[in-house]
Design a protein around this nucleic acid. Structure first.
Lengths: 133, 133, 133, 133
DNA sequence: GTGGTCTAGACCACT
DNA sequence: GTGGTCTAGACCACT
């Protein structure tokens, strides 16, 4: 899986990393049980700091997407992904609200808004169909 | 219009403020041409610093939602809100992507995802219909 | 002569007013010896504050473009306009420098830059030819 | 590069700073990719507040002349300066107009006006040719 | 060590 | 009375 870090982005590097790994898991590019690169290897690959990779892995562990074994390192959660529970839905709502508000304020139609939301979701599924080893 | 600031949140105060004013504009609670409180008044109301309010107002000005008259203070943009142009759609896509990825990763169905997206949009329109006293 | 004030502009109103009167003098729309409207009349016409008009007139007086008679009010300088002396050229240079710098930084060609400078100058002369009473 | 701040000037300090850095970029004294001093270092060098430097850097960032890397600090935009697009030309026209008006009002010839405009442009290019040690 | 955010407090220009 | 600018000083996130 190819990860691209934009050092000039406003998004902190550890967030970019977390997001992209989560996308990899969502598309199935990263399979349950699959090992992630070691913190050291990934940091050197991407030319970023050890701590930054570590922080991303910790967040993924805390939200239940990966497990961290003392020896094997980080592994994509094998038995059951974390559920889309109420707490997650509430967070989603909280994050969607300001985006929807700006869309409404700019006069975007509900159809266009939903089309963009659908597109964001289906792009991940599409990649899931394709399948990369 | 009631504004609530969560000092514990890790969303910066000026962002919380910007978002809520944008919601007010989206729902129509804040009418085009309507005056916003002066930076000093709002800051003291919310118990925050005047510079923090100032930053929120500046962002709203730069994105075209309010006008700042040097002596009269800030008023909601009267003639034509900023359009939902390509740049905005691209930003929206960029922001929706990681949220969709986490939803997919957590096994949320596309139906549920779209329901939440629709809900976020329609809640604003609903409030718009309702009208404020 | 028609004066338009943009209350939403970043340029202070007294500057807008000063500039437009100076343009009127430059194009000849305002003739030497011609009386300007009274402070009171102009302020009420434009819907702005007395003090604001007063400040504009004072600046024009200080730079030698108008004379202020206690009874007749403000009159366009009759006997000889203020010269484009060294002090003025130095001020011009100081103001042109940052604009030229940004133009160069943005890759504008010298031809284009000079075309815009020429245009700004000739538009005033063109209006001078036409002549409005 | 030597930066001089005039605390007496009525041009805000952050504008003086922005202008001088832009001149540095225009002349090539500041090379693409080159690091600017940290806000703290420059502020202490110039004897001004760090927030003032911050504001100048933010303006340069927003207009595309520098990039701000959260931890590395500010660097001159490397890949492609912001273009001299229509919006910039319109701004230039708006700023040139009152200067041209005053020049005409003071009886400056078009030749002299253009000579000063050319000089402002070429002085930057000249410095560019020269090269800095 | 870097910029980002926030506070507190001041003076000024504009109206 | 309004926003604009500036200072001084603090804590935090990121690396």
């Amino acid at each position: 899986m190819i990860i691209r870090i934009d050092l000039e982005s406003d998004t902190p590097i550890y967030n970019q990393l977390t997001n992209q790994i989560m996308e990899g898991i969502a598309t199935g590019e990263l399979k349950p049980g699959q090992a992630l690169p070691s913190v050291r290897a990934l940091a050197s690959d991407l030319g970023i700091n050890l701590h930054t990779v570590n922080k991303a892995y910790s967040i993924l562990k805390d939200s239940g997407f990966v497990q961290i074994h003392r020896q094997k390192g980080a592994v994509v959660q094998a038995g059951g992904m974390p559920p889309a529970d109420l707490a997650f839905e509430e967070r989603l709502e909280r994050e969607l609200r300001p985006m929807a508000a700006e869309a409404v304020g700019r006069g975007m139609t509900e159809e266009r808004w939903l089309a963009l939301c659908r597109q964001a979701f289906e792009q991940l599924h599409a990649r899931r169909e394709g399948g990369t080893i």
